[in-house]
Each structure stands twice: as C-alpha cells, then as structure tokens.
Design a binder for these strands. Structure first.
Length: 315
DNA sequence: GTCCCGACAG
DNA sequence: CTGTCAGGAC
C-alpha cells in the first residue's frame, strides 16, 4: 500500500501549497510556507490548555529528575502502550533502582522481568547501554544528544525524551503522539504521508524553553486524547507502519523459545524444538521444520539472548 | 482486525 | 528505504 500525498503539495514543503491550516478550524495565512508567529503562538496556548485538560500526571515516571529512571520509562514506552508500561516500570525500578544495579544484573533476571512487555531486544540494549554508561560516563546518564545517540537502543525519539523530561532541555522529541498533534493542527485532513522533515521545524519553533518537560507532557496527553476521539492523525505520517499478524508469526515463535529457555536454562536444542512443536500443534499450526528452528535459535543466540553450546541453550 | 510515548539491520 | 521485533487490550 503506497501512501501518496493527496494534496497538490508534492514538493518537500507541504504547508506551502495547501495553505489550509487546520487547527481550531481557523485558517491562517502562510508566510512563504512557514506558519506565522501568531499561528505558532495560538498553537502553544492550545497545547498548554489541552495538556491541562487531558493531563495524565498520575503516571509514575512523570515529574522525575532521575535520568536513568526516565530512560527506562522511555525505552519501555517504545511502541508500547502506557497501560502496559504502568505495570512494568515500577517493578523494574524496584529490582534495578540504579544504573549500576542494571549494569551488574544477570541477563536472565532482566529478561525475566521483561516477559510480557514485548520487544525483548530492548531489554538487552538497556543492559548494554547501562554498562556503557558505567564505563564511559561515570555511572550516569549523559545529557547531550550525541552521547545519548551513541548508546544502543537509543534513537532520536528516546534521546529527545530523556533530554526534555530528565534534563529540561528543549530537545526535538518526535514520536507518535507528538506527530498526532502536529499533523492534526498543521496539516489539512486530506494531506497524506507527512514526513518528519516537515514536522521537525515546527517542533523546534514551538518547544518551550522554560519548561520542555511540561511542554512535551502536554503534547503527549493531547495527542493521546486526539487518538481517542477521532481517527488517528498519525496514520497520515509517512512513518506510520502497520504490524504484521502476530498469530503464527516468526515473532511469536521467538518469544516462545526465549520464554522456554528462561524457564529451563541449559535445556537442549532438541527439547526446545519438541516443546515448540507441541505448542504449535496445540494451536492448530503445523510443526516447525528443523531448518527454521535452527535459524530461530541461532538468531536469538546471535542477538545475545542466550548461548548455544553444542546442544545446550544457556542464559 | 486495530493500536501502541521506535530502533536497528539489511 | 523496507522488514523485523511481543504482547495484550480493544
């Protein structure tokens, strides 16, 4: 399904042409493709107001200065709903209160705590990043974009989140809720495939320098509310991607294998295959052939989830 | 089926 | 740029 820009603005700066700004139903004049300062100021007021109206300030990781704690929450929230992270973050922080605790933790224990959260790779990256911070940054989280991006599992969004939430820096933080708000407010509803390139200048120009943390809380809360009340504007992002079906997928088998090895560390390759196929058959699916099983296990081992020594799989 | 406070390898 | 990754709520 190729997404194509529906509006006539095929050029890189979409908000030149459309000249239909949405947002509070008000159409404002553009000035050479850039929203006027009046428009931006009206937007800023709207964000603060919506942030107040739809605040989710009861989330346990909010209003926290500990950059490590913020970091853990941001990683957990990557492509994962708030409602799920609410249950995992407190447990994780209790088990590993400091970055040193995580850096010195057993991989098996971290993965065990991660089960049910999804995207297990994140847990490994989190541990590796913690080790890097202990070694390179004296057991603290770095507070610059470049240093954050140098850590595994931290991309532009997570780095921006840490800078804004933990360090109160006016960073560029673009994720699904932020996209939802900016697309909803600055791009006419028929505009498709809005690229982050078009959002980032707006994000930079509007971010509060007095209170970046509060600013992005407000954006997130407004974005979450917009998604509840109307069709998700993020679908009009060029970066919006649908998930493949999980049932019967490669991912589901990976998850099963990892859970099995965690529960029976040292289990043989053959036994894991038997358990997997029992499960597959129980769910009405065909057995997994040896080649595929081999590949799945090797991939997991290569990514560092466990070691494969001869026939034994050991976390 | 839909979505989720993305990162990374190829 | 595209495909992959996890899991449960709705």
């Amino acid at each position: 399904m190729t997404q194509k820009r529906v509006s006539s603005a095929a050029s890189s700066n979409a908000y030149v042409q459309g000249s239909t700004i949405v947002g509070d139903g008000a159409c404002t004049e553009f000035n050479h493709g850039v929203p006027t300062e009046e428009r931006l100021e009206a937007f800023r007021r709207a964000v603060w107001e919506a942030g107040l109206a739809y605040a989710r300030d009861n989330l346990p990781w909010r209003g926290i200065d500990d950059a490590y704690a913020v970091y853990v929450s941001e990683v957990m929230l990557q492509q994962t709903q708030v409602s799920r992270v609410e249950k995992f973050w407190p447990r994780f922080m209790e088990a590993f209160p400091t970055i040193d605790d995580l850096a010195h933790a057993e991989t098996a224990q971290v993965l065990e705590l991660w089960q049910g959260l999804g995207y297990n790779r994140r847990a490994l990256a989190l541990m590796r990043a913690a080790c890097a911070c202990v070694e390179r940054f004296d057991s603290t989280m770095p507070d610059t974009l470049d240093d954050l991006l140098s850590l595994p599992g931290i991309g532009p969004a997570t780095a921006g989140g840490i800078l804004a939430f933990a360090f109160q820096k006016p960073a560029v933080y673009v994720e699904t809720n932020v996209r939802a708000v900016f697309i909803h407010e600055f791009f006419a509803h028929h505009t498709e495939a809005v690229h982050d390139r078009e959002l980032i200048p707006l994000v930079e120009q509007t971010c509060s320098h007095d209170n970046p943390r509060g600013w992005y809380y407000a954006l997130l809360d407004w974005g979450a509310h917009i998604k509840q009340t109307e069709k998700n504007p993020t679908r009009r992002s060029a970066h919006y991607a649908r998930q493949n079906t999980f049932e019967g997928s490669h991912r589901q088998k990976r998850a099963f294998i990892l859970r099995t090895v965690l529960a029976h560390s040292g289990i043989s390759f053959t036994e894991v295959g038997a358990l997997l196929n029992t499960e597959e058959n129980r769910m009405g699916r065909p057995s997994v052939d040896q080649t595929t099983l081999n590949r799945l296990v090797d991939e997991l081992a290569a990514e560092g989830f466990f070691q494969r020594v001869d026939d034994a799989l050991q976390v």
